[in-house]
Write a protein that binds this DNA or RNA. Structure first.
Lengths: 259, 259
DNA sequence: CATTGTGAACTGTTTCACAGCG
DNA sequence: CGCTGTGAAACAGTTCACAATG
């Protein structure tokens, strides 16, 4: 999961939309967009919920926070809802975004088509490696980290994507924040610390895999009640202070992706 | 955020660990691993919580679900906790993983170092493009989709990563499930439908960006109370059934990444 | 006596179920 | 009549605050 911080209590402001609802709006929007393309004029909460993979009561409750946009006995007008949700999410304006760290992952992100179409625009690709500078990735020339502050100021960028190794992430984050960025999407396997008012969300591959492993193990253990595994550990107190030997676990120098 | 489905009520089983806690265990594990590498013998809940970016009460409550692994007045033994959490997450065994869809993103994932070190092993890279077959990516030869079932069976794979375009994701998912996969990490911007007992988590770039945009907009609107934006929409009922013109929004043919 | 472990209070989220309405 | 919108109930997760204890 991703982490957002520094939100006001969600219920404080008059039209305070619950965070859980906000997180689902993009999902509804995608489903609605697909319907719109097929020129479907209206949907019921039931249909739309199915398309978005949630249940219909939840969807109706979510929409109720936005206002009463449906028609009883009929459903929701697709185009109208697309607009309302887009507006609510702030997608009626274009958000310039910088991507910092153009490794395998950064390049993948830069090449990602969904950017341009839905409210976001890649304003710049930035990397610390001077040999990358000037090279085009996804049709955009990579620029050196030196220009970071300038680029952000010139383009009025407020959203930054960090796709650097974990080791440089905090440093990059600090520079982004100092340059005026107030929202960060972090792909590096680190906890970023940011001042009040800056939002951070993280995307972390290895966390997701570990959560899957947990459930996978559960399933396996369902039948077989007991099981001996690898070498048991030392008891808690007085435990040997043995340094871990193997190759450094993640969080270290992950050349490319979330850990 | 990512979505897990088909979990039992979380509180049903005797040692039912809350889902929210499970999602944080990898975070703690990472922080602990870093401490372990620095040969730090013990941590207090306060210190560890800071390193993991949560508050200490939450951390203590989380650990209390695993058992009483701390020492009052002292803190937690780092090595011991690493082991306990690893075991709880099922990382004391190795999970073979297949990655399907070796585009920009798939390649980034394959190159990701955090895999090997922490309980996961890339068993195979699979792509539908015949011209990729046999080509090495991250030192592993890409194999054609035809061999998917065979590979999964031969390697006893139970976790699959989908990094294909949205259009092929459901189809790939169905084949993975039919071949015995019971946990899926989905990077394609689609809602996958799977049978009972299969877990799906999704990682979705554009959803994360949209959530950031929402909060970003909030911040901007804080001062300026009113604001006129792009063309207002048609009223809900009797709305024109105009087909959206522009380039297809995401969810369509995203060559590379989550939408 | 510093720090864990945990009941109890609280806050947020989901689900239920049905009144309201086009 | 069918489907939305929403109070109220149920549930899940977080935070508080302090007793227990090595």
């Amino acid at each position: 999961m991703a982490t957002g911080r520094n939100h006001r209590p969600a219920t404080s402001r008059s039209r305070g939309i619950p965070e859980a609802t906000v997180a689902r709006l993009p999902l509804y929007l995608r489903a609605l967009t697909a319907l719109s393309e097929r020129s479907v004029p209206t949907v019921s909460s039931e249909e739309l919920a199915a398309a978005a993979g949630v249940n219909s009561a939840k969807l109706r409750k979510d929409f109720s926070y936005l206002g009463s946009y449906g028609t009883r006995g009929v459903g929701y007008d697709v185009e109208y809802l697309v607009y309302q949700i887009s507006r609510e999410l702030g997608l009626t304006q274009d958000w310039p975004v910088v991507i910092v760290g153009i490794g395998n992952l950064g390049a993948a992100l830069a090449n990602y088509g969904g950017f341009a179409s839905r409210g976001f625009r890649v304003a710049a690709l930035i990397d610390a490696d001077p040999s990358l500078a000037g090279k085009p990735v996804a049709g955009i020339d990579v620029q050196h980290t030196d220009a970071l502050e300038q680029i952000i100021a010139d383009n009025g960028v407020s959203i930054g994507v960090i796709a650097t190794p974990a080791g440089s992430a905090q440093q990059v984050c600090d520079r982004l924040v100092a340059a005026g960025i107030t929202s960060i999407l972090n792909f590096a396997p680190t906890v970023l610390s940011v001042p009040e008012g800056v939002d951070v969300r993280k995307v972390d591959l290895s966390i997701e895999l570990q959560i899957l492993a947990f459930h996978e193990q559960r399933k396996a253990g369902e039948d077989a009640p007991e099981e001996e595994e690898t070498a048991p550990p030392a008891a808690p107190p007085a435990a040997a202070v043995t340094k871990r030997p193997g190759p450094g676990p993640d969080g270290d120098v992950p050349a490319v992706m979330p850990a």
